[in-house]
């Protein structure tokens, strides 16, 4: 009889992180709990040698390099870790890869910090939402939402994972965001 295999600490963390990411993406507007605060657990659950990553945080960059992922300029990256609080940040985000109609999966995943529950009120509709979801987000530049709408010319677009400590909210490209 084989012994029941047990997950190690990394497997438990990666599994829990992805459960949160998948839950948040399939129900935009719902807040899920990450196993650890910050974007590092998201990076570790998703990234390896096959990935091209842009990160604007030096400590995080060092950990990302250790996964084998390549650090590249933002327009070439498939995963982008940065804040979206400034006008300069929006210029970088405007040039992210949004995939193509042939391969929508080439669109980048943007991982940004924000305060969930305060600030700009947003109304969300789209797949994963029964009627309408409302969320409030602070720490994101007011121009971001118009920019996101421009980038998300469905089925092209980017996924936005928003983390606030150990809380996670996700906006897939299929979600329509209206400022209220």
């Amino acid at each position: 009889m084989l012994a029941t295999p047990l997950p190690d600490a990394e497997e438990i963390r990666d599994n829990a992180t992805f459960e949160a990411v998948l839950g948040a993406l399939s129900r935009p507007g719902t807040v899920r709990d990450l196993p650890d605060p910050g974007p590092l657990c998201i990076a570790l659950a998703l990234l390896d040698r096959e990935c091209k990553v842009h990160s604007q945080d030096e400590t995080l960059s060092a950990r990302i390099v250790a996964t084998g992922a390549a650090l590249v300029p933002a327009p070439e990256a498939d995963h982008v870790f940065m804040a979206a609080a400034s006008a300069e940040a929006l210029e970088v985000i405007a040039r992210l890869d949004t995939g193509s109609h042939l391969y929508p999966d080439d669109g980048a995943t943007l991982i940004v910090p924000a305060k969930i529950g305060e600030g700009q009120a947003l109304q969300l509709t789209g797949p994963g939402i029964k009627s309408v979801e409302r969320v409030c987000l602070d720490g994101i530049h007011p121009g971001f939402w118009a920019l996101r709408a421009r980038l998300c010319a469905y089925p092209r677009g980017i996924e936005v994972l928003i983390h606030d400590g150990a809380r996670l909210l996700a906006l897939p490209r299929s979600t329509t965001v209206t400022e209220v």
Partner: peptide, 22 residues
């Protein structure tokens, strides 16, 4: 754990994210 090696799981996770998004 779970038979698949971690890099296989990470690739599937990345693809599932995009599959749910589109």
């Amino acid at each position: 754990y779970g038979f698949l090696d971690p890099s296989a799981k990470r690739e599937l996770r990345r693809k599932m994210i995009k599959a749910v998004a589109v």
